[in-house]
Each structure stands twice: as C-alpha cells, then as structure tokens.
Simulated assay, not measured.
Amino acid sequence: MSRSSRLRILCYDISCNKRRRKIARLLEDKASRVQFSVFETRLSDGALARLVDSLEPFLEGPDSLRVYTIGQTGERHCDVRGAGIPVETETGYWLM
C-alpha cells in the first residue's frame, strides 16, 4: 500500500441536523459511507488535511470529528460482517 494513499476512517457526532447534513454531503464527495456517521476513504495526508479543514467550521460545542489512519497491518485484520460494504481497496473500485 502506498504511504501517500492510506485507508482513513472518519466519523462524527454532530448535534445539529443542518450542520450534520452539510458534513455528510462534504464527506460523501470524498469517501464511502459505511455507517450512518462513519466514512472510509483512501487519501493522501494533504488531501485529508484539506478535507478536515473544510469540515472544521461546521463543528460547534459538543460536536466531534474523529479521523483514524489504518496501516497495512490493521487492514489485514479488518473484518466486515453482515450487510456492510467491503473496505476500499487501492484499486479504487469494487466488484460486487
């Protein structure tokens, strides 16, 4: 896996419906929604910083945005069960 394009997990807890919808729309442009407030994507460090910077103005009071970077070892141990979509691959597409 290229170090410049690592698997990123973004999740949020936003109290206001309007701001929550705005953040979801911004994330949907750059990531795959895997749960209601959880997204996965492959982004470089620079692209991730730009995305997070675009989301930060919508965070207020008790709101939170968490970003996790998953390395190769973590990806090998990722297990999706049930109706979940598969983890994004470096190839950029899924065969279903």
Rank of each mutant, 00 (worst) to 15 (best):
R6T: 09
R33L: 12
T89W: 05
A31N: 06
S5P: 00
T91I: 13
S54I: 02
L59M: 11
L51D: 02
R20F: 01
I14K: 02
D53K: 14
T41V: 08
E28N: 07
L55V: 10
G71Q: 07
R25K: 15
L51K: 04
S4F: 04
R20V: 01
C78D: 10
Q72L: 12
Y68E: 02
Q35Y: 09
L27M: 11
V87G: 00
S44T: 09
R66S: 11
D13A: 08
S54W: 02
L95D: 11
T73L: 03
I85A: 15
E40F: 12
E90I: 12
S54H: 04
R76L: 09
G84M: 11
P86N: 13
I85T: 14
R50D: 13
L65G: 03
S2I: 10
F39K: 02
E56S: 14
S44V: 01
P57L: 01
R21Y: 14
D63H: 05
G84C: 08
V87K: 04
L51Q: 05
R76Y: 06
R81A: 09
M96Y: 11
T69S: 13
G46Y: 05
R76S: 10
T89Q: 13
V87S: 05
E60P: 00
V80G: 01
R25D: 15
R76F: 06
V87W: 06
L26E: 10
Q35I: 09
L26H: 11
I70C: 08
F58E: 05
R81S: 06
L51W: 03
E90V: 13
R50T: 08
P57Q: 02
E28R: 11
G61A: 15
N17G: 11
C78Q: 13
R33G: 12
L59C: 10
R21L: 15
R20T: 00
D63F: 04
R8W: 06
T69G: 05
K30I: 00
V80I: 13
R50S: 10
S44W: 01
I70D: 02
L7T: 07
Y12E: 03
V67F: 05
D63I: 06
K18T: 09
K18V: 07
P57G: 01
V34F: 09
F58T: 00
S15W: 00
I23S: 01
S2D: 14
R8F: 04
E28Q: 12
G84D: 10
G92V: 09
D45Y: 02
L55R: 09
A83K: 12
E40H: 14
R19G: 00
D53R: 14
